[in-house]
Design a protein around this nucleic acid. Sequence first.
DNA 1: CGCCAATCGTTTGACAACAGATGATTTGCA
DNA 2: TGCAAATCATCTGTTGTCAAACGATTGGCG
Lengths: 151, 151
Amino acid sequence: MPTKTADHVYFPRLAAERLDIALCRASATVSRAADTHAAETGLGVGQHLVLQMLDAVGPCSQQTLSEELRIDRSVMVGICDDLQQEDLVRRERNPRDRRSYAVTITDSGRRRLAQAQTSVPAFLDDTFRSLAPEERAQLSTLLGKLLGIGA
Amino acid sequence: MPTKTADHVYFPRLAAERLDIALCRASATVSRAADTHAAETGLGVGQHLVLQMLDAVGPCSQQTLSEELRIDRSVMVGICDDLQQEDLVRRERNPRDRRSYAVTITDSGRRRLAQAQTSVPAFLDDTFRSLAPEERAQLSTLLGKLLGIGA
DNA sequence: CGCCAATCGTTTGACAACAGATGATTTGCA
DNA sequence: TGCAAATCATCTGTTGTCAAACGATTGGCG
């Protein structure tokens, strides 16, 4: 995660000419905001995503979580470790395939998720306050296209 | 830099609900492409930015470069080290303030920059091929707004 | 002048993310 | 059945970035 931003001025022609850099900057800015929000809710971004997915689709293996959420397997280990330690998920062996876990969200996991869910919209509104709602939608669409999602 | 992406499917509701994540993904994807391009031209992204700025505004201190390009001072040390080693910049002490350097682009630095500049548009066209030109412009505008550039 | 704070470049240590290797288990195929 | 290959979770080592601390130098103020 990049350094705290100060009130400096970007090299002016940067944003227009190098979309790659601009995306990187934007990502960093938003990630930082997300981390702050995460610290407040007590759920890291990765942890939040995992809970969200478990709540939506039911028990998953870490492998499935990794692939769907595009989080590296070895990182997923740590995320699940932390979630388990806080009793937000359970790790049970999948009886059908004992290589894999069946990671399951617990009741307190659901409660924690619910708390976070209500604060996410406020966080997003704050983070993207420089964009009008329709611009946010545009941005979302464009990023979706760029990433090849929901084409 | 995140892992190589495969042809998996994102957790479907991600892009719309969590722009932060989408930005992160997009940034990662594009960064990876930028790194590939950088490897081809022999100029890392940071090195390219520094040369670009030195060429545009003349000799700078590392401090100025850091602030304008939003690259951490301690990272700038390494970037300038590498550039100097390849004889693309010179580091002279600023006689007015001997604490700081006057980092100056060399002739071979200018040549290297010129080579890279011609290949950047091609690289960008390839990376953003899933977006129409007007969409790229839109994206650029939106990111600029989000970052508070050229408002 | 003389001292204290600030600045510039650098080094060090910490941390997150990734690539690759490992052990346990399962699957595919002869 | 039996064995090789694949898969899941994990661990280790590497890389890139950041925060904090450090010398060297400068500027401000009595």
